[in-house]
């Protein structure tokens, strides 16, 4: 008598993805809050250090102005072409007049003509020679001038190249120098900040050590301040404790002095420069409560 539709009906929802995403969101938000919002830092205030410096840090070195770029020298004047004076053609020797003899007139005439012809030929030859010589001279002069010009141009080019190169080298060197100086300044500033931090940290440590060793008198009221000048060995051993300003409560002053002596050796930074703030003499300002 058991019917199939008597079976109980179950409806089980599957895993809810939206809920999973929301849960993830809650955790991410919490983690962000934890990382971004909360940061345990013990920062020591910088002003604490100001009066402890023996010498002020060196003022920043003035950066040399970059030299103005020198003008390139004026190009040398091109030399005027020397015009060689044309060589004068040699004058032909005057022709000697042959004696006019009737008999030998014809003969003489022909001879004279021949002679004349020869003379003319010689003259022509001389003229041609002279012209050739003249042309040679002109061509030689022009060649020489051209070579000279070329040499000068080349020289000038070389000079300019050299100048440019020197200038580029100079500017690169000055840039490098500036960068190095800026880096050095930055490093110095960072170093000083680091020293200031270490000094502040050890100041706190010394105060904490002394405070831990102090047995406060019963009648102490408020938070009185007492100042000491403590002479220290580089190892931190206390040599001498001198009170520079009383708190007004002698019992408390005594207690703090005893505590300083008991705290010997005091913790000192390993860094030599940071230790200069403590050795050989440390001015200690003490209050029973922080």
């Amino acid at each position: 008598m058991i019917a199939a539709n008597d079976a109980p009906h179950y409806s089980r929802p599957g895993p809810n993805l939206a809920a999973g995403l929301l849960a993830l969101g809650v955790h991410i938000a919490f983690l962000l809050l934890l990382v971004v919002g909360v940061s345990w830092q013990t920062d020591h205030p910088e002003p604490v250090m100001v009066d402890l410096w023996d010498a002020l840090p060196a003022p920043p070195v003035a950066v040399p102005e970059p030299q103005p770029r020198p003008d390139p020298p004026p190009p040398p004047e091109p030399v005027k072409a020397v015009q060689p004076a044309p060589a004068a053609p040699p004058r032909p020797a005057p022709v000697a007049q042959a004696p006019d003899i009737a008999l030998e007139k014809k003969k003489a005439e022909t001879a004279r003509l021949e002679k004349l012809k020869a003379l003319q030929a010689a003259e022509e030859k001389a003229l041609a020679d002279a012209a050739r010589a003249e042309a040679d001279a002109v061509r030689q002069a022009r060649d020489k001038q051209l070579a000279e010009q070329k040499r000068r141009d080349l020289l000038r080019q070389m000079e300019e190249d050299e100048l440019m190169q020197r200038m580029a080298e100079e500017s690169a060197a000055s840039e490098l120098r500036q960068a190095r100086e800026a880096e050095a300044r930055l490093a110095a500033a960072r170093r000083q900040a680091e020293i200031a931090r270490v000094v502040g940290q050890f100041r706190d440590k010394i105060s904490a050590t002394v405070r831990g060793n102090t047995r406060l008198p019963d009648d102490l009221k408020g938070n009185p301040e007492v100042r000491f000048r403590v002479r220290l060995l580089p190892t931190g051993e206390v040599i001498d404790v001198r009170r520079t300003q009383s708190s007004g409560n002698p019992a408390y002053d005594e207690a703090v002095e005893r505590a300083i002596r008991k705290s010997s050796p005091l913790p000192l930074p390993a860094d030599r420069e940071a230790r200069e703030a403590f050795v050989p003499e440390l001015s200690l300002v003490h209050r029973p409560k922080e």
Binding site: A19, L22, A23
Partner: peptide, 18 residues
């Protein structure tokens, strides 16, 4: 604990919707 926290938040949201 992170796992437990995650699962519990998941169920919190599942139950809330349901």
């Amino acid at each position: 604990l992170l796992g437990a926290s995650f699962m519990s938040w998941w169920f919190i949201f599942v139950k809330w919707f349901a």
